[in-house]
Structures are given as C-alpha cells and as structure tokens.
Design a protein around this nucleic acid. Structure first.
Lengths: 347, 347
DNA sequence: GTGAAAGCGCTAACAA
DNA sequence: TTGTTAGCGCTTTCAC
C-alpha cells in the first residue's frame, strides 16, 4: 500500500494525496476529508524511507546507550524513566525516539559513525560521556545535532546536561563533617567516565572547605553496580583505621555495600556513615534507610528533549537555537544510614 | 557525500562503486580496492533511506518495550542483558537492533501500526505479551516477521520464547510443600500480562500434585516492582492465619517484601518462607540470601535473535524457516530465605 | 485546487 | 568488467 495505490483508489493525483495528508493549505477541504478517510480505512502509513530520501530527515532521534559492565544490568533502571520523559516531549512534535544499543564488543565511535553516516536519525543523545570523548569531536565535525547526557573535557559548542556531582559531593562531605567525620571515603567509577573526575574534584574542594586533609587512600574505585559496592565495603573493612564514612557515586553500589557490612556485623548509621548516590526503587527499601539524593529522571528526560529540539534546524521556529549547559540539581533525602538514630526494623 | 560524489571522485560509474562496496563478484579486484580505500578515506557510508527504498529492507530489527509502571524503573535491568545477547547475533549478520520505546501515554497497537507502516524495521521482537494480544493478530495479518518474548492466548503461526513460569511454580510449590508448608501464597502481576495466568495455572497444578487445596485468598496481585512487593507483604501480614510461605513472580518484588517483613520484625527463612523469582544483581545481595531462579538473559537474547532470523525471508538460506515455541528453563538457586538455617549477617 | 514531473541515494537489470 | 538507466515512495515545484 503506497501513496500511488491510495491515489489510484481515490482517482486523484498522488501529489494531491500527499498534500492532503501533510496538511498543506492549498487543498480542497472536501478532498482532504476523502483522502484522510481512505488512508485511515485502508491503513495507509507513509513509507519512512521514501519521505526521508526526499526530505533529508527521518523524524527519528537516537539515544545511544552502551551496554558496558557498568550499565548492563543496572543502567536500565536509570534510562527507562529518562526515555519516558524524552518521549513525552518528542511525541508532541511527531518525533520518534529509538534507543541505539552499542554492544560491548563494538567500538562506540565506529558504531556512531555507522548510525550517522546512514542518516538513520536526525539527532542524537549520547550518554556515559568520557573525560575525553571522541564521539563529541566526531559529531561536531559532522555537524550532527546532538545533546550529551554528561559533561566532558572535550570542548566545543554543544549542549550538555549533567547531574550535579560536585553538589552531591559538597553536600555529603559537609553533612558528614558536621556529624564529626574526618575520614570520609568515596566509591567512584573505575572507568574513565567523566563523572568520576567531576565527583572527585567536588569531593576535594568540599574537604578543603571543611578543613579536612585529602587522603588518596580513601578513594575506592569500583564498578558501578552491586558487586562494586561489595568490593568497596571489603576495601573499607581492610583499612586501618577504618574510615568512618563513605559516599557512593552510583546508586547500585549501596545494595552490595550494605550486604558486606552486614556480613561483617556492621550497621550503616551506627558503625559507619553511608551516603548513597541516587535514590532508587531499590534504595528506598534498604534497612536502615539510605541517605541519598533525589532526582526526577523524567524531568531530566524532558529537559534533554528540549535541548535536542533547540539543536535541530527543523525546529528553529519553536525552539530557538540555544546551547544548553545545565547542571541538574539533586535533592538530599535524609535517611538513617549516615548518623546514629533509630534505624528501623533491624535489631 | 553520496555515492555519486564518490563515483565522481574516482572517475568511475556509480554502478561500479555500488557493486564494489557491496562485495559483488563481477568487479575488478583493483577497482574494488580503490573504491573501498576512497570510501574509507572520505568517510562514505551509504544512506540507509536510499538503500531501503530500493531494496525494501532496512537491515534493522526493532525490539519493542513498553515503559509501563511495571517496566519503568525495573524493566531496564531485565532487558539490557537480553539486548546484549540479541545484538551479539545480529552483528554477525549486519543487522542493527533498535529499542522501540512505546511511551506510557501511547497505545501499543497504534504505535506498532506506525512503526510497521513506515517500514522502519524488517522485523520485530515484542515483549510483555498480554493474554489476548492484538499486536500478534496485527503482525500476523500484515505478515511482518516477528518473535514474541512471552506466550499469549492469541494463536497463530509465530515464534515465541517464554520463561518457564509453570516450572518455577511447580519447583517452588513442591519444594515448600516438602518443607511442610500448606498455606503458600503467590505474588502475581496485577495486569493482564499473560505470564500471570501461566504462573497461576502452574501454581494450581502444583498444589494439586502435592495434595494441597487451592485457596483464592492466597493470590496476591500487585505491581511488579519493589512497591508491589511491599504491598504483598502488607497483605500477607494482614491475613489470619498468616500464610507460611510466599512465592513471587517478579524479581523486583523481593526487595520491598523483605523491607516490610523487617519492619514487622519477621525474617525470611525463619518466620516465613520466601521464594523469589529471577536471580538479579539486587537479589544476590539480600540478607538472608534469597532462594530464587537463575536464567542467562544473554542466552535468552541469543535464542530470540536466532528465532528472529528464522522468521526473516532474507535469511532463509542460513536460518531455515522455523516456528520456535520455546519455554526457557530456569534453575533453582537455593538460598536461606525459604527454610530455617543459618541466615547470614542479620541477628 | 489539482496534475505532471523531477529527483532525493541507492541497487539491479541490462547493454556494451 | 564497466557504464547506463529505471525505479523504489515520497514531496515539492511548476504549470494549468
């Protein structure tokens, strides 16, 4: 069922059918009615390849996520709500969102090259930005509209939105210092992810602001998943003297950390102060409740979508060209894990 | 940079360039070499719309996931490893996988209609099958190659792969009955998801096989997330007498259930027997350890991909046409949560 | 307000 | 072995 079939069926030219379907002004209202009715009845949907070839746009935005060891199990729970937010904006503009899954065994840069070269999407959202990220250079050079979820040391005129890692670090360190802690460890990503550097910087500055010296041995790199959190706890327990507090920069670590602490007979809040990263469905059900940071991932997705639209030439009218550089605030959710109190449930 | 530009640059015809790039036999090795070299050097990648329009295929497979309340946070951790497996197979055949995200506010059927009508993908993998699933009828009618992740009461000649819910039910019930339990509750999905029906059937049969009467009040429907698990626990606690065992059919429920039990001063394994569903990174770190079922999601993805290839006419040579109807086994992982023993950590 | 026709980038059939 | 050309489905200009 092509536009030609539809035109033949209605006994009018395919040009008129096209104009009717695309809401052009110069078409008889009666004719338009007939066309729309027939299209609906016959289930006609325009072939995207045909449209794309002609118009040079696909009306599709790609959201590239890599399924690395970091994101394989865990990342999904982060991205899904973000997608949902992105999509709620795109739908209003008849844009479709597809998740582009770069597999573990494929080079992100060459994957990107293929996707872009094929003209598969009109724009891209990239995530898991690296400190030095060749994807950014590539996209800038090819003049592909894109937005980065995450900052990078790679400079240029592009929009990015990132979580407020330094704010989290500052708030957490200051809070713990206020409770009297001096040996505050951090669990950071083991990879070259830019967020690790940003978080570390914030941590160092916050230490200084609170008059606490920096001790490199308190930095505990690990994978950003439950297993990594477990390992962080192991390394904590091995230190002499043991740090009295730990801040995590990944939401999945807390579960593993808790587990290891329990195995050692230690309780968060009583024996060691724990501040987790993002509040998640998991963390909400930990005992004792986890002190962590709240963020609306859906709203983040909405902002990402708007930044994307501002980068798309086709939407210049509705979303004026603008470079967004936004640090997304996170809000402290006070729990029982970082100070003595009345932990629930567990004896 | 189109094929025309490339041809002009090399001063040969675009037909020859096309053949060289597509590995056709009838092209001078020397010419091919020149073409490939130039294409690489100039960063030429064929425009997918042009190819698709001409060939009628897109070399892209869509994996449709709905971001419902069930999957919003939780589903990601299930799907990511599956994607990874699917992709590992597709890559060998130069197929790309895209995740098609049907938003909460969009009707899955009309979303599907749009995707299919536009000829966006050559084939589809659908998930979260409903007991009566209009998507299946639609795809069968339009003769779109597809594979369903999940069974459905909707019949027809199509491939599906599903988890072994009845096997899980049988194993869990039999195991609990062996430990002496008679009042065994189940936490099932609140929606019309087909897996709920399959699981319930298996549960009933297993009860009968173990000489236990069926009591409808032991069926506790809830959302398949942590919150749902919490609610299941609340309803358990409210029953008089309280069931002595609970089987969950969703991996995310266990965390919330544990939480509520702790709040009530009850411990899995000691005060109530708990069998979770899928072993996950979360569940692995619960205390006491959760008795649950292991599955390789990556292998599941590989099988899905192979079933998809068997449904694609273009791959008839390598993957003969075949209808796969496969129930994927899950393997019991014995933990401390379903019987008295030596629970770790918690007093 | 409508029809005719060009052409987006590509592949495949055919001609040379 | 290579060049030429038709045409995939669509939108858009240009006549009418």
């Amino acid at each position: 069922m092509s536009i030609r079939d539809l035109a033949r069926h209605l006994d009018i030219s395919i040009g008129t059918v096209s104009r009717a379907l695309n809401g052009k002004a110069d078409v008889n209202p009666e004719t338009r009615e007939r066309v729309l009715e027939a299209a609906k009845r016959l289930g006609y949907v325009p072939n995207q390849s045909g449209r794309s070839l002609r118009q040079g746009t696909t009306n599709t935005i790609g959201f590239m996520i890599e399924s690395t060891i970091e994101t394989a199990d865990a990342g999904g729970s982060f991205f899904m709500p973000v997608f949902e937010g992105v999509q709620s904006v795109f739908r209003r503009h008849h844009l479709d969102l597809v998740a582009l899954l770069c597999g573990t065994d494929e080079d992100p840069a060459s994957y990107l090259n293929r996707v872009v070269g094929r003209r598969f999407v009109d724009g891209l959202i990239i995530s898991a930005t690296m400190r030095h990220d060749p994807r950014i250079d590539f996209l800038l050079e090819r003049k592909i509209p894109f937005v980065a979820l995450g900052r990078s040391a790679t400079r240029g005129d592009y929009s990015w939105i990132d979580l407020d890692f330094e704010g989290v670090a500052a708030t957490a360190v200051t809070r713990l210092a206020g409770f009297g802690h001096r040996r505050i460890a951090i669990g950071t990503p083991a990879s070259d992810l830019n967020l690790g550097y940003v978080f570390l910087d914030g941590y160092k500055r916050a230490l200084a602001a609170n008059g606490i010296g920096f001790d490199p041995s308190l930095i505990l790199p690990a994978n950003g998943n439950e297993e990594g959190g477990y390992q962080v706890a192991c390394r904590l327990l091995a230190q002499e003297p043991m740090p009295t507090a730990i801040i995590l920069v990944n939401e999945n670590m807390a579960v593993g950390l808790y587990r290891r602490l329990y195995e050692a007979g230690l309780q968060p809040g009583r024996d060691i102060a724990v501040i987790g990263f993002r509040e998640s469905t998991q963390s909400r059900f930990l005992s004792p409740t986890l002190t962590c940071f709240r963020i609306s991932l859906r709203d983040l997705g909405i902002k990402l979508a708007e930044a994307m639209l501002s980068a798309l030439p086709a939407f210049e009218g509705q979303y004026p060209r603008e470079t967004v550089e936004l640090i997304w605030p996170m809000q402290l959710v006070s729990g029982e894990s970082d100070r003595p109190g009345s932990p629930s449930g567990l004896a």
